[in-house]
Amino acid sequence: MKRVAIAERPNWKALADEYGFAYAMPDGQRYWDERAYYQFTLHQIEKDIEEGTEELVALCGEFAGRAVRDEEYLRRLNIPSIYWDWLAKSWQRHDKSLYGRFDFTYDGTSPPKLLEFNADTPTSLYEAAVFQWFWLEDRIKAGALPKDADQFNSLHDKLIARFKEWPKSGLFHMTAFSEELEDRKNVEYMAECATEAGHRLVLIDIADIGLSRNGQFVDLQNRSIDTLFKLYPWEWLIHEEFGSAMPASNTIWIEPPWKMLLSTKAILPELWKLAPNHPNLLECYHEGDPAASSLGSSYAAKPIFSREGSNVEIRRDGVVLAAPEGPYGDQPRVLQALAPDVVFNGMRPVLGSWIIDQDPAGMGIREDAGLVTGNTSCFIPHAIVG
């Protein structure tokens, strides 16, 4: 694994505009950065990243099967009891999941270590699936990369194939808080994939979803919402005014209700408890657990529902090295052993290993000079060479 400097395409900004990558430079700041790329060998991808991802998929499945009736765990996630049977039935029915993203730290030599699992509403999908693939093709054509260079990236094709698994008899609705540009653009990309899979798509803002008198969810044209992809977190949705109507509705939800079990950093200590010393896990405990004393005074304290690195506190030998502000400071936290400090040319990469259903499907890399990957961290392409 290397971080390799490379000339950027002179027209990449125009290409981003042409392809609808509207958040490539939010507020004039680089988010997409192709002045470097991360180079991997095929062995590193197949043996470390893909196999590590498969291991964690299996562990998460084993844990979900145990947690689905664990009332203590459900309370810890602040899931009201009115949803417990619905969640359990969703798991027992094997309601279909679309995707997820495991975030790793990895140095190219040691096994990748899990930082967190984005099981419900992962973003950075378009740039991982499409824009970095176009970058790879363009760099090969220009002779900047070898002709046999490749990428860990079957996301686009696997997304389309997975969307074909849902019923096509009615309309397929997709929603997000559309004022958030990145969320809206990720949903628009997924809508293109679903359309290619044969669905009739309706895009709707989360605030425009209504509830009919007979307890069914409808859109602004009063059409029944039979299948709904939501880029909106379960931990918010179940506390919305209309949330209590969800279990009795006929809507098929993507991600399914059982994903509530996994879409939280609270799974990190549970996975460690299930598989202590697993090579892909970092030691982790719920804050207040006496066993957490084994971490000493060096750890990462993470609110269980924080996003984009907000309110994550990094301590080393009792000294706070980073503590980005955010709205999640009043949440329960987990304490996770510090990951190895992997640095390439002054930058710290986090590898997002995507799954479609349960299958490893691609990778996107975010990097930052700081200790916490946040909203302003850059996305860097990758290539498999050798």
Rank of each mutant, 00 (worst) to 15 (best):
V187N: 01
Y73N: 11
A7R: 14
E165C: 03
N186R: 06
D148P: 08
D120A: 06
P146H: 01
L114Q: 05
A7N: 14
F217S: 02
S81M: 06
V343Q: 08
Y99I: 09
F379H: 00
D148A: 10
L87V: 14
R30L: 15
W258M: 00
K168D: 01
R184M: 11
W166H: 08
A16W: 09
N78V: 12
L145W: 02
E46W: 02
D208P: 05
K141T: 07
I45C: 15
L155T: 02
K158I: 02
N375F: 15
D183I: 11
T121G: 11
Q39T: 05
E54V: 11
G362E: 01
L268D: 00
G143Q: 10
E192A: 14
N277E: 14
K141S: 11
A275P: 00
G20Y: 09
G210A: 03
P279S: 05
Y83E: 02
R316Q: 15
D157L: 05
A197F: 07
D157K: 10
I204Y: 01
F63L: 15
E55H: 14
L261E: 01
N78W: 07
L98N: 10
S124F: 07
P332E: 13
S293T: 02
E51I: 12
W84Y: 08
K2Q: 13
N78G: 10
V350F: 00
V130A: 05
G362F: 00
I238P: 02
D148R: 13
I356H: 09
F344A: 07
P327W: 08
P233Y: 06
N78L: 08
K113A: 10
E180A: 10
A14C: 05
G215L: 02
A291S: 12
Y189P: 00
I356M: 00
V187Q: 00
L237N: 04
W86Y: 14
S263H: 08
W236L: 10
L181W: 09
K302G: 10
F21E: 10
S110R: 08
E313H: 12
A197I: 08
C193G: 04
A292H: 03
V342G: 01
N78Y: 07
F177L: 13
D359K: 13
E62R: 15
A300G: 03
F305I: 11
V4P: 02
